[in-house]
Design a protein around this nucleic acid. Structure first.
Lengths: 333, 333
DNA sequence: TACTCGCACTAGAGCGCGCTAGTAGAGCGC
DNA sequence: GCGCTCTACTAGCGCGCTCTAGTGCGAGTA
């Protein structure tokens, strides 16, 4: 920077002004300085900048490797952060790299706020984090912690899916739940409520599962085994998420079950997996972009006004009807 | 830091020494300082650290959203970088955020080197980048650029897959290529070479595709349409990658084609999709961890010795045989 | 003319560390 | 007693930038 200043015949301060796009520099000088900087290959040093500024204007984002929904969120976070003048730092949790470690890395880089995508860390830790730093949790509610919370109305989404199935005439609807995956408690609750509301209380059945393909495969095998023992297949399945739905779908299809003629499947998330099937997977879409924008805005708002209490944003999910759901098969009288 | 020093009754310098784990501090003092720091909630400021040190010891990693293989690489990069004493910064390219933008973000944070996962940017830009900064490209060869290059022996992997299929008695083997996806040119070449080598030149058929599910679905429809016109199905398909293989698999399975009885499918990448099928997808595994380690080491080596010329690492891929490949069906005489 | 005002620009402190050069004191041999 | 080394610690500069408090100057105003 000193080089640029010298070569352009101005003070360092003016170079600084020009690079921050502030008023207070003549048009001509501005151009000259920028030209010189370009020649030299000068690029402002973020570290020094951040140090001098006293604040980093940086948002840290923790995500988990292999979570395709997190990628959608990240894609949404970047533009919104940029719009509000914030930089984004990513840190991944993975096998062998705990969420806490990922978060600590972010804090070490002096992120002013952290956005946690589907965190699964100890609530006590998250609360402590929330008191120390502005923290936003996406998808996962952390009851006792001082953090903002952005999620979609899981219950509403599950309800829409259930209403869709019931309207198609389904009665024997099974739910594969998502274990302790984000949102799965709400989805399970909504499934139960919907069954009751439609007078199908007796047909209720929740099969424990997880948000993984394997869980769907396992459930598929279970259902097929039951069928071979003479029990009827359900006519529809509400899966915990798309991955689970896909595993189920693969297993059933391979066994000759025609989806959606014999059985309908509804997923959750509208991940890119939904397009894997030629007929498409009926699923519930969470608007990742909107969630991302909300998360960023929550963080920035609280940064600008530290008095603010943590807030909660509930976004409406939307049922996306594709080929994996259809009219209930005729029951043999 | 000054607070910690004062409260512990030592100089700032000593605190610095302790936090860098250097010799030159008494056991007792060390413990006291660390305890005080913990009480205050002190955490060394990366920006200041980096500024004072003159170098950041930070590796920048650019990846593309929704590329599941990139996630595997990232998971491998973290531990190796940590082992060598480097920090890792992630920056994602996505819809609306070009690779160049992602890279510039990394450079702004004074990364000493950048590791590009499957870059697709302009070679001229990459060359310029390579001259300015230590740069490693993973998976994508950039012929004219001054960058290190880590990849797996695409040809070898494809050859293994082909040998596997031929051994199983397949002759009518089709290849769906990956368009301009990383490695697809080599895979295509290896397919052609293998067909020739096995005397199947007349059976050669490359169907243009892409590294997407849709590409597999489309090809599946094409093959089914041909069958309906009386043309024989191929007995085996070498897909451009796993996503393509899965799309194909779904399409064929739904149409009643039994995999692997009627037709074998081999993918490429061993992404988590491979487990989606109950029978598993036969595929070629690229060792992500090894690739990641090589990439990090290339970067660090060149950082330590700037004289070093860019190098290339070719890692052996490995055929993983699962349920989607089996003996060729008996041809009707 | 004397003054204020706004614009273009500058001087210099300070952000939180790392690092070099140094000091104080203990232990040791002679 | 002396010099020597070794360990435990400190003083203070400087990294590259931002930011506050200015300076100098020409135009506008009374």
């Amino acid at each position: 920077m000193a080089d640029v200043a010298e070569k352009a015949g101005v003070s360092r301060a003016l170079v600084s002004i020009i690079f921050r796009d502030l008023p207070g520099a003549g048009r001509e000088t501005r151009e000259r300085v920028l030209r010189v900087a370009d020649e030299i290959g000068y690029r402002p040093d973020n570290a020094a900048r951040l140090l001098a500024r006293g604040r980093s204007r940086t948002l840290g984002v923790m995500f988990t490797v292999h979570q395709s929904f997190h990628m959608d969120l990240i894609a949404g976070i970047y533009p919104e952060a940029e719009r509000l003048g914030y930089d984004v730092l990513l840190s991944a949790a993975a096998q062998g790299r705990s969420e806490e470690k990922a978060v600590e890395a972010l804090l070490g880089h002096r992120c002013e706020a952290v956005i946690l995508l589907g965190p699964d860390a100890d609530p006590a830790y998250l609360d402590e984090l929330g008191r120390r730093t502005v923290t936003v949790s996406v998808s996962r509610r952390v009851p006792q912690a001082r953090v903002d919370f952005v999620h979609s109305a899981e219950g509403k989404g599950a309800r829409q899916a259930m209403d869709h199935l019931v309207e198609l005439g389904h009665r024997r609807i099974v739910h594969i739940d998502g274990g302790r995956g984000p949102g799965s408690a709400e989805r399970r609750r909504a499934y139960r409520a919907a069954m009751r509301r439609h007078g199908l209380e007796a047909e209720q059945r929740v099969i424990p599962g997880a948000h993984t393909e394997d869980s769907g495969i396992e459930t598929g095998r279970l259902l097929l085994a039951e069928r071979d023992q003479g029990l009827p297949l359900p006519t529809a399945v509400l899966a915990g998420n798309d991955r689970c739905a896909m595993g189920l779908l693969m297993t059933l299809t391979r066994a000759g079950v025609d989806v959606p003629r014999d059985l309908s499947v509804v997923g959750y998330d509208d991940s890119h997996l939904s397009h894997l099937m030629p007929i498409g997977l009926t699923t519930v879409r969470q608007d990742a972009v909107l969630m991302a924008e909300n998360a960023v805005r929550f963080a920035v708002d609280r940064l600008q006004n530290p008095e603010l209490e943590p807030r909660e944003a509930v976004l409406d999910p939307k049922l996306v009807v594709r080929g994996s759901s259809g009219p209930a098969p005729q029951e043999p009288a």
